[in-house]
Design a protein around this nucleic acid. Sequence first.
DNA 1: CTGTATCCACTTTGATACTG
DNA 2: CAGTATCAAAGTGGATACAG
Lengths: 124, 124
Amino acid sequence: MTREHAPCTPRSRNGRDYFCSVELALMMIGGKWKPLILWGLGTRGTLRFGELRRLLPAVTQKMLTQQLRELESDGLVLREAYPTLPPRVDYSLTERGRGLLPILESLSAWARDVEAQDQPGRPD
Amino acid sequence: MTREHAPCTPRSRNGRDYFCSVELALMMIGGKWKPLILWGLGTRGTLRFGELRRLLPAVTQKMLTQQLRELESDGLVLREAYPTLPPRVDYSLTERGRGLLPILESLSAWARDVEAQDQPGRPD
DNA sequence: CTGTATCCACTTTGATACTG
DNA sequence: CAGTATCAAAGTGGATACAG
């Protein structure tokens, strides 16, 4: 690590301040349910709102809507609404969102190592 | 993405529930100032408490102590206290903490792409 | 079916003062 | 120097009811 990869200059996005790019990334994926949502959309592809709800029963409707809105406004998730009756809304990952998946997998692998170290003899 | 890399089985750590390993990782690095602290220790090596304070002036003393305690109890940061007068405490990354650095760099690179796309003509 | 709106509990963060 | 204690402010999440 000879170069400075993440300059710590104060910046701001949507009114929230941050100092390094890692913080920005965490602002976008750090919501309580966002990793789960991203993972769901990443592994299953396009999902309707109701399908997401059934996939993540622990998430209340309010939070699911809210987190999806934030993911959408950060350009990670694409929302496509069809003004039919009853209404139908499809959610999927954008290119930007898909670019995050390999990193989430690395994070996941790292965390699974941590779990394995903390609880030896319970490899899965 | 043909395999399921992060099984979404409910688990718990320190009394907090989570469902996938990515969430666990976010629990450990998702604190408001943790990325900054990890980055500081990653790029500068061992730092005393006061050096960290000067490096991160925006972080209050209370928060710095608190986040360091959590990083320590998650095994990411090593705390070495010398009972001298005045007291002296050194902080550094553990092996586990260092394992996170390449991933933080990927996250950082991804976020800088996002910044570049959002604000064309301001590459840095 | 896919949302909003409201209210409340809980948690997190900050400001300030004090200590070994 | 490196904290701890306390209180107040702000943010977050959940339950419930209602709407197009």
